[in-house]
């Protein structure tokens, strides 16, 4: 049940999504990944992708135009 972070600030699509996908695949079930992003499109497509994969997702706005996407690997 470890927690990992992934810094995608300044990255445009689809890099945040690709990095998240890669990182999630390395984790075990129950681990949590916190992805930092500041790209409004990634704020929509990263959570969408994670939900479609069946993971638990939460979005938190940590600053103006900056988000943390918390993904709990579910399978």
């Amino acid at each position: 049940m470890a927690e990992f972070t992934l810094d995608c600030l300044g990255e445009a699509c689809p890099v945040p999504l690709m990095k998240t996908e890669k990182k999630i695949n390395e984790l075990s079930v129950g681990d949590v990944l916190v992805v930092s992003i500041d790209h409004s499109c990634a704020m929509k497509n990263v959570p969408e992708w994670a939900r479609k994969q069946g993971h638990n997702v939460e979005i938190e706005e940590v600053d103006d135009g900056e988000w943390e996407i918390v993904i709990e690997k579910a399978k």
């Binding site: 949590v32 939900r51 638990n56 997702v57 939460e58 979005i59 918390v70 709990e72």
Partner: peptide, 9 residues
């Protein structure tokens, strides 16, 4: 915010 927020939160 969605499902299982307490769990991860």
């Amino acid at each position: 915010e969605t499902n299982s927020s307490t769990e991860t939160g």
